[in-house]
Design a binder for these strands. Structure first.
Lengths: 199, 199
DNA sequence: TCCACCATGTAACTGGTTACATGATTAC
DNA sequence: GTAATCATGTAACCAGTTACATGGTGGA
């Protein structure tokens, strides 16, 4: 027991590499320049993480040696890496995931349709939705019970959280509807010039 | 240069101790049982953090020795700790703070009216609001430019982020209005039975 | 020639996680 | 007496941060 668990950053890397084989530099740019910027992007995080993934056999890096090219190590997902990614994407939704702001769940979602297909993605969204519903119920009952005794800023901070989760809840509805539509009329689900990820 | 910077957890502890002198166990309970659960709560995080704060002179712990009482170390804010807290609360809002989900900003807000008063809090909310506006503009222009080429899940994930920030933006409006109201009719801004924090 | 960018590393440090340990007090 | 809770610690481990280092390539 206690085999070195893959970090969230590791899974983010796995997911991006699955979308498109990439070098460490490519991945750093994605974290630095896109909406995925909440993850590191520093070389001291990315390169060791890639080494770890490679030593676990989840990715494999090949040095590109074209003429007049800078050396760069292009990483591809191995089949073991693919199944590790799918296992992570298929994990049941814990309420702890919701409590921590649901960022990891959103990350999973953004890789999910490519790896598991639209049906699994819709199922995931439905589970996400009911987890949010349960969590919201708790927050709202807490608020209604304690609002009178709470300091104003505490009450407002809690209300901000509630609004945020309610917004996410509405979003899951919207996302499910959108997915259903795209299934019945699947014209151009992915564009050819797709560069991957949630930029 | 490079004096050991106080972590976000450290500031969370400072803020809670300012609201009410507390022991490590009290603070752990707050993190474990309230909406502040995104912070550690594990003894291996709290107690070392308290030691660090004490060694920096920001708090001071006194062992309560009442008869028939379990020994517990009650921490109080020192004046140095009070000014450190105020400095943190008064920091200008960086867009990096907004990008990382604004959790630290919400933490600052929840301690702010006690430490800096309602005027500073309203000013903070106004700054928060305009930072959100700027960030939202960037996200939305990115979306409108790239939506056609993005994979469905990536687009939806981005839209979820935009909805979240828009919700926060609306919340800042609401919070500012609420604060203004409470200033003109300041009846019972804090209840006597107040137990502090954003529970 | 020199700067900007591509591209990959590494070394020191440090805060948080997990897990274990200890003992006192209260309630049953 | 024993279980639950109060209350505080500590030790091993590890990922991420900061900062520095290295060298190739393309354009001005």
């Amino acid at each position: 027991m206690k085999l070195p668990d893959t970090t969230v950053l590791g899974y983010a890397l796995l997911g991006l590499i699955q979308l498109k084989p990439s070098s460490g530099y490519d991945l750093r740019k994605i974290f630095a320049e896109t909406a995925m910027g909440n993850y590191s992007s520093s070389p001291g995080a990315i390169y060791p993480a890639l080494e770890r993934l490679e030593s676990q056999g989840l990715i494999r890096g090949v040095v590109e040696d074209g003429v007049g090219l800078r050396r760069r190590r292009l990483y591809k997902l191995t089949s073991k890496g693919g199944s590790a990614l799918k296992r992570w994407l298929s994990r049941p939704i814990a309420q702890a995931d919701v409590m921590r702001g649901a960022q990891e769940l959103m990350l999973r979602f953004s890789f999910m349709d490519r790896a598991l297909g639209p049906d699994a993605t819709i199922a995931f969204l439905a589970g996400f939705r009911s987890a949010l519903e349960a969590y919201l119920a708790g927050l709202e009952s807490y608020l209604s019970e304690n609002a009178p005794q709470m300091p104003l800023s505490g009450r407002l901070a809690l209300e901000s959280g509630i609004r945020g989760y309610r917004g996410l809840y509405d979003w899951t509805d919207y996302a499910i509807r959108t997915y259903r539509q795209s299934q019945t009329s699947p014209r151009s689900r992915h564009a050819k010039t797709d560069r991957g990820g949630l930029r």
